[in-house]
Simulated assay, not measured.
Amino acid sequence: MTIAFPNRGRSYDASAKHIRFLGHDGMFEIRFFVEIDILTKGPFSAASSERDYLTAFDSLRTRIFDVAERVYASKRKSSIILKLADFR
Rank of each mutant, 00 (worst) to 15 (best):
I64M: 08
E29S: 10
F87C: 01
F33Q: 09
N7G: 03
F5Q: 02
D37C: 01
M1F: 07
S15D: 13
L54C: 09
I81Q: 00
D25R: 12
S15F: 07
A68M: 08
V67P: 00
S48A: 14
K77Y: 08
D52L: 06
F21L: 08
R20P: 00
H24Q: 13
H18N: 12
R76K: 15
S15G: 05
I38K: 06
I38F: 12
D37E: 13
F33W: 10
M1W: 07
K17L: 10
F21D: 04
E69L: 10
R10H: 15
E69N: 13
R31K: 13
A14L: 08
F87W: 10
D58E: 15
I19P: 04
E29G: 02
E50W: 11
K83W: 07
L60A: 05
V34I: 15
T55N: 10
T40W: 02
F28E: 08
H18Y: 09
F32Y: 06
R61G: 00
R63K: 15
K83F: 08
A73R: 14
H24L: 11
R76T: 05
F57I: 03
A14H: 12
P6L: 07
K77V: 02
E50T: 13
S59Y: 12
G26Q: 09
R76G: 02
T55V: 06
I80L: 14
Y12N: 04
R61Y: 06
K41Y: 01
G23W: 01
F65I: 13
F33T: 03
R61T: 04
V71K: 15
T62G: 03
F28Y: 07
A68T: 03
R8P: 12
A46E: 11
H18M: 07
I30M: 07
F32V: 02
D37P: 00
D25W: 11
